[in-house]
Every structure is written in structure tokens, then in C-alpha cells.
Design a protein around this nucleic acid. Structure first.
Lengths: 343, 343
DNA sequence: CACGCCCGTGAGAGCGCTCTCACGAAATCC
DNA sequence: GGATTTCGTGAGAGCGCTCTCACGGGCGTG
């Protein structure tokens, strides 16, 4: 069976549609772009001709003259493959895509696991191939967003940039409020010695959730004890070992706020292995509300991030910026405590 | 101002590079495309000029004349938002993207949750905006892949199409072998009455895993008993209720193969609620090897799908097809039993 | 030495679209 | 009623690139 290549019948062009409608290419273009100053007769004729010929505008041709690509890059600057198994990113992608698509733009998926690939992307973006960038999982003080902005490519970040650069536009969960609410819940449930397994302190999420923990204690007039604070790495294993360390240093711990659900799961395991029980001896709160949080025994109380909102908002802000508007640069979305059985 | 024909903020064009290298546009183009018949001198000059000017070719212009978009659509034809929280898709996307990017193509992310949007995509693809399509989560006997092929847009599916159309190119996990291996493991561990919670029978994954179950029993000379087979819907709740039904109909069940991990989790819950214990009274095997499988108590024995391989292979096949080759249409990748504590 | 043959090169024609500009007709003004 | 302003329209010039084609010079052949 020979491949039926059909170079002969090309998709209909604007020329064809215009001819069929009995107008000029210019008028047909005006109608199809929704421009003003077209008579109703012409408009109808063009629309009908377009429908009949199943006309689809050639984006390349359009892009060539308008100098806009009508596409947005969704850039995941992540080297750890593990994170690609996080539902978080995909849910964010889905939500962002819905907005982008609704605006008639394309969503181009890109990764930049290494500095070299980030540079390659920068080069690519400099070529005018994208109108804007949604940047995820920025590491440390990477200058990529600044470079992109300098090139005139509007960029919106997920998460507050560690550099604190106020010129960058970002959307983040309210990690401080989340950490605070989680800790307050534990205090209100009667805990005397609330520990925390903080996230990595080179990430703003890690920093902010710890800040929330501190604020909660201070709000209740308590001191923040060094022995009750230790940082993990957001993984199950990290949560497990950190919890062991904490319990060894402070056996009287009766509650712990883990800065991620995975760490909370590890912590619960360590708590049970130490002969204590959750929540009776030690209450646990996580952060993220992964699907796993519902599967643990007991089910995990946690702080839910508004993932879909995050993606949607990022896309909306970026679309505004692409349109030349100047929306607020910092957007922080509220989180919500989900009470289950571990507290 | 008015006589400044080329504002500074425009990216350099081939014209500029060529002039700088002291050659014609045609020669510069040849070098940059890697075409033959260019002298070494000219090649070096052009490459240097391109580097100096940070030249990035304008894809739109190229696309306009080559009639290729150099981009691939990653189309998720899924209406259920729930599935966007599945790590499965994102891992697949990641693997596929790596291949596509390595080939120098763009990956355009698209969803088509409704028939109307599928049609819109078809229209879009007909306009020559993508060179090929990776199609995920095709439902039932949707004709979308056939339509795309007819339009001359090569398409590679994830999962065997239910229609069985041999002209379609797909990549699938070996669901039959997986179901068989899972069931055989249970039999070998001494189970007398092996039940199965099958997947939806309008999906080939559901059908095939059930077939594997049947083959295993037959291989051991056992009859397939009606009361030991029931279909669920791949969810935790579905697994839970189906297991209850099975236990009620056949209290002597001592092992169960669930066609998905989520159903296995539901089943384990139902088993424990009935006063039985896993794995002592009833052994359980799942399918997928979600991250959750490691978190259950006891940890779930399951069948791991080669997700990254799936994505990689899909992309490779599609790239071959885009290049005009005609690779095999059916690719089935091996799965692997992961033994944990539930058996 | 004459003949053809590559082989590297440049000129130039578009690809399908948008956008500026000019033009005639209709509408409005003084 | 003549002058001016709309308003809808079409002609035509590119956008930046690829690709065909023609050309000139170096080379092998007879």
C-alpha cells in the first residue's frame, strides 16, 4: 500500500475564499480577523465562502507579517524526572492551556532541564517564536525570566522568585497563610509541642511555610524552639528521617506540620515506627493535598493548593501582558485546610 | 525615524547574516539548513556570522515555504478533568517531548474534551499547522484518527484502538501479558479462587487485562467462573463496591486481580471491612504501579507499565511517519510485575 | 586544446497573509 | 450646491525564508 501523499490539493487560501465570495483578499481578511468597516453583505458572503471551503487561515503566513506567533510557551525548567510524575504540573498545564486555547493561542510545551537548554530556549524565544512564557519550577536565582523580559518576551512565573526581583510577574499559593493555618489548627487541637518538618530553605515555598509556622506560634505567644524545627527535602524518605531526628531530639512532640504531603507520609511512618500513634500521640498536617493524602491511614489533614486557579491565573496574567497591559506583578492565591483524620 | 526601515528590536534575518558572511542569502540558507554543496570557507563564514548576530531562523517564514510546521500536536482527547491528575499522562508527555525536541520539532499541547473541540482540532490540523499527532485517551470508536490520516496528518495512538482498524498506528502496554502474569502470580502463591475486578469493557485495556486473567486460569487448567469476574470503572470507589459484590457472591475468594491500582486500593479496603486480611486471607494484585501502590498497607503488588517507553516509542514512530517511513502499526511494550506485600 | 561536466554560487520568484494607501461613492457640512 | 468627510473596498507591497534555475569556473576526458 503506497502512501497516498497529496501535495496537489493544498488547503484553501484566502485568495480562494475571497474569489468565491466575490470580494478582494483584503476584504476577506478583514472579515476573518473581525475587523471593522466591512459591509454586512460582504461579511456574510465571506463567512459562507470560508465555511464552504473549510478554510483555515495559515498561521505561518499570518505570523510572518504580524510578527506575533500567537503561541505561548509552557516551560518546565526542571531537571528532576521525578517531578514529572507530580500531578501538580499536569493539572497546572491543563488549567493554563484552557485559558490560552480560549484566547485562540497555541500552547507550546518545552522543558529546560539544563542550563544549556535554558539558553537554547532563550535563543529560540529571542527569535520571536513565542509571545509569552509560563515558567515553572524556576531554580534558585536563575536569571532566565529576567533575560526573557529583556528580550521583550513577557513571562509569568509559578511561585515567588527567590531573587525577590519586583519586576517579575508571578503567581503563588499563600504558603505563609497555609503554614500558619496548619500550625494553628494543631495548636487549637490542644498540641503543646508543635514541631515542623520544613521544606528546603533554598525554595520560597519552603521558606514561606516555615514563616507561617513561626507566625502561628508567635500568635499564640509561644516561643519557636530550635529543636522543634528541621528541614526536609519534600520527599517521603526525607520526611521519614527528619521525623526520626525530631523525635529523638524532642520526644515530647505531640504534633507536627510537614511542609509537604509526601514528607507528612514519611513522618507518619516514622511516628508509628517509634511506637506512637497518629493522631492520638502525635497529630500530623501536610501540605499540597495530593491524592495520596486520602489514602493514608489515618487520612491526612493537609493544606490544599488551588492548582487549577494557579494555572488559570498565570495564563490570564500572561495574556494580559501579551496584550500590552500591565497587571499586578504579585498574585497570591488563598489555600485551604482540609481536615481529615490525622489531627 | 520614518526612514529607519529596520528597527533595532527586530531579530536578525538571514539577509543580515548572509551580508555579514559575504555570501548570498541562498548560501547562508544552505549552510544553516545543513545542505550539501557548500564550500568550507563559506560554511565557516556563515556559521560565525550567525553566532555573532545570535541569529535564530524565523520558523514562520520557513514554514510558509516548506509547507511543514515542524511541530507535533500532543492531543489529549479527554473530557474527565480527573484524568489530568494522573501522573501517567504527564510522564508520557515528558518522554514524548524529549524525542520531539531532540528532532528539532515543537510540541504543541492540545486538548479536545468534547466532540466539537475534536472537530475544531481536525479543522486546525487540516490547515497544515501540525506535521503529526500524538493522540491520547481516545474514546470508544471515535473516528478522529481516521480523519486525521485521511487529511494526510500521521497519527500515533496511545493504546490499541477499539475499532481494531489495522491502518491506525498505535503503541500499547502488553495488557494481556500483564493480566496473565498477575493472575499467574496469585495462582502460584497458592490461591484456589482467584477473582478479578476487570476494567470497563468498552476500553481495550479493560478487555485485554481480563483476557490475560482468563488465559492464566486456562493455562493452569482451571475454569473461568462467572461469579469470580466483575467489571469496575478503574476508580477506588468502583473497586470497593465491586469487591463487596464479589465477596458476597463468592465468600471463598482468596485472591483478586484488580485491573487498576486504584481499584485494588478500593478492593483492599472492602476486603478489610469484611473482616478478612490482606494478603493472608485474600491476596491482591493491581495494575499500573502508581505511586500510591507503595503507600498502601500492605504495599500493593502490581503490574508496572513502561510509561516513559510508551511516550518515547510513540514519538519515535510518529517522527518516522512524518519523515515518510512506514513503521509497523502495532507496537506492544512489555510490562513487569512488581512484587510487594499484598500477595 | 576543445569539449562537456560538475559544483559552488547568486538571482529571483514566490509561500499566504496583513496592512497601508488610494480611490470612488455616499453622507454630511456650511 | 459645492466642499469636505466619512466609509467600504481593492491594489500592491512586503514579511523572511526556501528552492529552482542559470551561470561561471575548474576539472577530467578525448
Amino acid at each position: 500500500m503506497a502512501q497516498d501523499r497529496r501535495p496537489a490539493d493544498r488547503p484553501p487560501t484566502l485568495e480562494v475564499v475571497a474569489a468565491r465570495a466575490g470580494v478582494s483578499r483584503a476584504t476577506a481578511s478583514r472579515v476573518l480577523r473581525g475587523a471593522a468597516n466591512v459591509s454586512e453583505d460582504a461579511r456574510q458572503a465571506v463567512l459562507e465562502a470560508a465555511r464552504e471551503t473549510a478554510y483555515a487561515p495559515n498561521r505561518a503566513a499570518r505570523s510572518l507579517v504580524t510578527r506575533r506567533s500567537d503561541s505561548i510557551a509552557f516551560l518546565v525548567a526542571e531537571s528532576e524526572v521525578r517531578l514529572f510524575t507530580e500531578p501538580y504540573f499536569f493539572a497546572l498545564l491543563h488549567a493554563a492551556h484552557a485559558q490560552i486555547a480560549a484566547a485562540g493561542l497555541q500552547l507550546i510545551f518545552v522543558t529546560a532541564p539544563t542550563a544549556a537548554e535554558a539558553e537554547h530556549f532563550e535563543h529560540y524565544a529571542a527569535g520571536g517564536h513565542v509571545d509569552g512564557v509560563l515558567l515553572l519550577s524556576l531554580h534558585g536565582d536563575d536569571r532566565l525570566p529576567q533575560s526573557l523580559e529583556r528580550l521583550g518576551v513577557p513571562t509569568v512565573l509559578n511561585g515567588r522568585p527567590l531573587s525577590g526581583d519586583p519586576s517579575l510577574c508571578y503567581v503563588d499559593s499563600d504558603n505563609v497563610a497555609g503554614g500558619r493555618a496548619a500550625t494553628e489548627l494543631l495548636i487549637q487541637r490542644g498540641a503543646k509541642h508543635v514541631a515542623t518538618i520544613a521544606g528546603p530553605q533554598d525554595m520560597c515555598a519552603g521558606q514561606d511555610r516555615l514563616t507561617g509556622y513561626r507566625l502561628a506560634l508567635q500568635g499564640f505567644g509561644r516561643r519557636v524552639s530550635r529543636r522543634l524545627v528541621a528541614a526536609g527535602d519534600f520527599t517521603v524518605e526525607g520526611g521519614h528521617s527528619t521525623m526520626r531526628t525530631l523525635l529523638a531530639a524532642a520526644p515530647d512532640i505531640d504534633a507536627v506540620f510537614a511542609a509537604s504531603d509526601l514528607m507528612a507520609i514519611g513522618a507518619m511512618r516514622a511516628i508509628e515506627q517509634s511506637g506512637r500513634r497518629v493522631p492520638d500521640d502525635v497529630a500530623v498536617v501536610g501540605f499540597d493535598d495530593l491524592r495520596e493524602a486520602e489514602l493514608t491511614v489515618p487520612q491526612l489533614t493537609t493544606v490544599r493548593q488551588p492548582v487549577a486557579d494557579l494555572g488559570r491565573t498565570m495564563a490570564q496574567l500572561l495574556l494580559q501582558r501579551v496584550a500590552g497591559e500591565d497587571p499586578p506583578h504579585a498574585t497570591v492565591l488563598p489555600v485551604e485546610v482540609v481536615k481529615r483524620d490525622s489531627t
